[in-house]
Simulated assay, not measured.
Amino acid sequence: MTASHDMLKPHNSSADKSRVRLWLRLLRATRAIEGELRERLRTTYNVTLPRFDVMAALYREPEGMLMSQLSKYLMVSNGNVTGLIDRLTSDGLVQRTLRDGDRRTSVVLLTKAGRENFEQMADSHREWVNELLSHFSPDEAETLAETLKVFASDWEGEAR
């Protein structure tokens, strides 16, 4: 039997099954929490989760972000971000400025009203997450968060 043939054989080890089970539980937990947060944002603030996410990204960058940076940060297409930014701009929550007079690139940032609006939503969001994850002690939450750092993303920057 060759090494390549061994790679084609199905793996049914206990470790394989445990990892698949872990992935499914993480996925279910994420979907359940995200669904609840979507609903609460919609009913409490009449805002979508993508809109909240855009505002959160811009809140972390008070000097603003290029549209391309924002797309990458949120892991969505430029077209999706453009529509959200257009609506946030028309609502007076975001402003768009040209970067160095270049009409092809614009920097977007929260307005004063946008920052205030986001801060109110973020406080509620934090309370809801704490409520939804209250069955974890602070130590358990910290341990699990530390364990899951292997999945660090662009928005986290360096390991925290």
Rank of each mutant, 00 (worst) to 15 (best):
D6E: 14
Q120V: 08
R87V: 03
K72P: 02
L84V: 10
P62D: 05
S68H: 01
R42P: 01
A3S: 05
T43I: 12
T82R: 09
G35H: 09
V129E: 15
S4C: 11
T143K: 13
F118C: 02
R60S: 15
L27F: 09
E61W: 02
R42T: 04
W155A: 06
L74Y: 03
E39Q: 03
T44S: 07
T30V: 05
W155D: 06
L110D: 02
Q69Y: 06
E146N: 05
L70F: 02
A15Y: 12
T97S: 09
L98T: 07
R19H: 10
V129C: 13
N80K: 14
T97K: 06
T89Y: 02
R19F: 10
N12W: 13
M75W: 04
L133S: 08
L110R: 01
R126N: 09
A122D: 13
R42K: 15
V150K: 06
L110C: 03
D53Y: 05
I33V: 15
A122Y: 08
D123A: 11
R51S: 13
T2Q: 07
S153F: 01
W23M: 13
K72G: 13
F118E: 00
P62M: 03
D91S: 06
P138D: 05
G114A: 04
F136E: 04
V54A: 01
A113K: 12
R51C: 05
G157I: 08
